[in-house]
Design a binder for these strands. Structure first.
Lengths: 237, 237
DNA sequence: AAGCGTCGGCTCGCTAGCGTACATAGCGTG
DNA sequence: CACGCTATGTACGCTAGCGAGCCGACGCTT
């Protein structure tokens, strides 16, 4: 019983599954540790494993070329990596980079696809997750285009904090610049502004969120919209 | 037999289906005329019908608010509108605007979902289409962020021409500005540049593509990438 | 304790694109 | 055949963000 509770609690996509599906999931998966900075996969490479993060999280990055790259989605305990297998495609659309170290459930591609056949509730929930991702991708396209670096940075910090689950985040300006697709100096200016306003504090690669409500205020509305969408389509039940 | 040929030829998602599926599709659908400028649906509204354009095409627009909106995808005869029903969600993620008048197959939502149950090949093909859309959304996010107006305009004209199927396009700068999420004056400058280079000619809302290879050259690589992806994942067989 | 690599603050000149506004030029209509 | 609408050309000052680079500060290593 404790293990069943554990699965549902560990990753939100697994919440609310019938116990038969939870058991099947547990039987098929293993728990692995993801190391910060690890590249799980590059675009168009074959997906050999899917990951359901527990307390780790993964950045999904669109790269047009080596210079132009940009994070377009994030998968933490509210999501998964390898979703395209649900669509019957075993190649990765994006670069997957471990951004928060921690543990994750892992299944190999074949087991995962067999599992989907046995688990209609999980299968449906993952289809809903795809819908959420599509909307978030569309919103990101607009957000990256219209919103200022400072608002996007605030949004990004909030999203990261939700997945990392603490006030302390391990992030350099350099890394943030890559994620937001902007210059490092641009991030520095935005970060100074957020710090001056007392919303965050940072020092040599450690960022602390001091005032979460204030940060939400500073972020663009996209943050709230994304949260609301997820909550509506994938309630934790 | 002619009708079977017709279905497969009319919309590329229907190409290569077994004839039993083509027949089922034809039995369930009707043909409608889409009028230029018609708003098929707004975000979060319930999808009552799905559309498979034949010679019409539809813009899918992400709108953050009334000012900030941006086209993130296009559905012509290579695609469809209402894809989220395949994921079991009957709300529209985006604003759907008829951008090229013409005809389309239409099915109501219930018929469509029943059809999917009867047509595994179609169902799988539509899942592949979702994968293509996700990658294109991700690429759009990066493209809109990194690429210049002129290159994006060129890309957009090419995409539109592919769907409209002629050299002549009915488009004002005003409209293009809305699609690209930029100022009208910005479009004018980019259009002047393309015209000066002999790639297009335009006059009062009619744009003619004069030099398609040259326009591909002027567009960002995203155009070729999108085409290649579609061809690879959804071959016309 | 010195050295070195990493991180962040800051500057410079520059460009793309913005918001706004006004002027011109086709074209349909009365 | 003048009127008025719509589409396009253009201009002005402004801002965000770019690319490149330099410097200082911190902290780990030796």
């Amino acid at each position: 019983m404790t293990s069943i509770f554990h699965v549902a609690d560990a990753n939100r996509l697994l919440a609310g599954l019938p116990s038969v599906e939870q058991d099947a999931f547990m039987a098929a998966c293993e728990t692995v540790e993801l190391v910060f900075g690890e590249v799980l996969i590059k675009p168009t490479e074959t997906i050999t494993h899917v990951y359901f993060p527990i307390d780790s999280f993964i950045s999904l990055i669109a790269s047009l070329d080596t210079d132009d790259q940009l994070e377009v989605a994030m998968a933490g305990r509210e999501g998964m990596f390898g979703i395209s297998l649900v669509l019957g495609i075993d190649e990765s659309p994006l670069l997957a980079l471990v951004q928060g170290a921690g543990s994750a459930f892992r299944l190999n591609a074949v087991s995962f696809q067999m599992l989907l056949l046995k688990c209609p509730v999980l299968h449906q929930r993952l289809k809903h997750y795809i819908y959420v991702m599509m909307r978030q991708l569309a919103r990101s396209a607009a957000c990256n285009h219209f919103h200022r670096i400072e608002a996007r940075l605030a949004r990004w910090l909030l999203m990261t904090q939700d997945r990392a689950g603490g006030e302390q985040l391990h992030l350099t300006h350099e890394f943030l610049a890559m994620m937001l697709g902007v210059r490092r100096a641009g991030v520095t200016l935005a970060a100074i502004s957020l710090q001056t306003r007392g919303l965050i504090h940072y020092q040599r690669g450690e960022i602390t969120v001091l005032d979460r409500p204030g940060l939400i205020e500073a972020a663009c509305e996209c943050y709230n919209q994304d949260c609301a969408l997820y909550a509506r389509i994938l309630p934790v039940i």
